[in-house]
Simulated scan of single mutants.
Amino acid sequence: MSGYRVVVTDHGFPDLQAEASALREVGAELSVYQCRNVLEVADAVREADAVLTQWAPMTAEAIAAMTHCKVIVRYGIGVDNVDLEAAGKRGIPVVNVPDYALEEVADHAMALLLSLARKLPQVTAKVRAGKWQTNPCRPMRSLRGQTLGLAGFGNIAHHVASRAQAFGMRVAAYDPFVPDEAFEAAGVLRVDFDRLLAASDAISVHLPLTAETHHLFRSETFARMKPDALLINTSRGGVVHSGDLAEALAAGRLGGAGLDVLEQEPVAADSPLITMPNVLLTSHCAWYTEDALERLKRFAALEVVRALQGQPLKHVVNRKWLP
């Protein structure tokens, strides 16, 4: 037995059986915490051989406390809570799990789009109020022939594209980091950001949260979109300025929004988005199915196993800072 110590800084799962099972094969044991601040994280990870983290603040201070950590694995796609540069400069790879819920998030994005396009919240409200109409909430337009714009063209966006095409939609995408061949293979039109805004009847956001993408969708962006366009966001809340979005919707400069992620989570009780009839809010749950949950836990644990065995890691996100 090697006696590896794998620290879970925090988690929101029913159990950690998948992780424990995978790590047992290499003689590693879990030390489980529910850290909520930097001091708690630093104390927990000091002697860790590997770290699994969900929301806890993995700041430079916490990372500096590590004495011999081989990898930090973030449960999920986003790595906002981890100081990637600080880890890289200490020679610690940071790994995410980008492939555990591709189908689920794509399904959720399309569900939001379909619900808004068919005005299901408004129709349901009318029925509950005793108003039975066969052509309620006019006007409605067919999705067929409309253009879905994708802001970002990674794995999830590819799945959204194929779903939208099945509904007869044209699909265009903006992503400067994806080669032309990927657009061509998917039958998706490559456009610049200005064209994406101007031509799209609906835009689905699939971007990481970076300094460049923070509040990318704000007042001036909404002003360049079609006045009846729909906005879907299942990526990161900070990409969309919530206040500007509410103002644009209230002023009739957008047709509606479907949001699974927000800048502030949980959503503030006094947020105007809550009461708007053309807004759908879900609770950062696009990723969730029981199958996806098990994949997330297992895939994260397998990255730890690779690190402890000296094998190549699949999804290193701070490679540019590593020695």
Rank of each mutant, 00 (worst) to 15 (best):
S2M: 05
Y4R: 04
R5D: 00
V6S: 03
D10G: 00
G12F: 05
P14F: 00
L16W: 06
A18I: 08
R24N: 11
R24C: 02
V26L: 10
E29R: 04
C35R: 06
C35D: 09
E40S: 08
E40W: 07
A42R: 03
D43M: 11
R46K: 11
E47G: 00
A48V: 00
L52I: 08
A56V: 06
A62W: 06
A62K: 10
I63R: 00
A64M: 11
K70H: 05
G76P: 09
G78F: 03
G78H: 02
D83V: 00
A87S: 00
R90E: 04
I92G: 02
P93F: 07
V94Y: 08
V95W: 05
V97D: 05
Y100H: 15
L102P: 03
L102R: 14
E103Q: 07
E104H: 00
D107S: 05
H108M: 13
A109L: 00
A109F: 02
A109C: 06
L112M: 09
L114R: 01
K119D: 10
P121Q: 10
Q122H: 05
Q122P: 03
R128F: 01
G130I: 13
W132G: 04
Q133K: 13
Q133E: 15
T134F: 15
T134V: 15
C137N: 14
L143G: 07
L143Q: 09
R144Y: 12
G145F: 06
G149P: 08
F153L: 15
N155K: 15
I156R: 07
A157D: 12
H158Y: 14
V160I: 15
A166K: 04
R170Q: 15
Y174E: 13
E181Q: 05
A186T: 08
R195D: 15
S200K: 06
S204A: 14
S204H: 03
S204Q: 10
P208F: 13
P208R: 11
L209E: 15
T210V: 12
E212K: 14
H215P: 09
H215F: 06
F217W: 14
R218N: 14
S219F: 00
S219L: 10
T221C: 15
D228L: 15
L231V: 14
L231D: 04
T234P: 10
S235F: 11
G237W: 08
G238Q: 10
V239M: 11
V239C: 08
G243K: 07
D244T: 01
A246V: 04
A248C: 09
A251W: 04
R253T: 11
G258C: 07
L259I: 08
E265H: 10
A269M: 02
A269W: 01
S271M: 05
N278V: 04
N278W: 06
L280W: 02
L281N: 07
H284W: 03
H284V: 00
C285Y: 04
A286H: 07
A286N: 00
W287C: 13
V304W: 05
V305P: 13
V305W: 12
A307G: 11
G310T: 03
G310E: 05
L313V: 02
H315M: 04
V316E: 02
W321L: 02
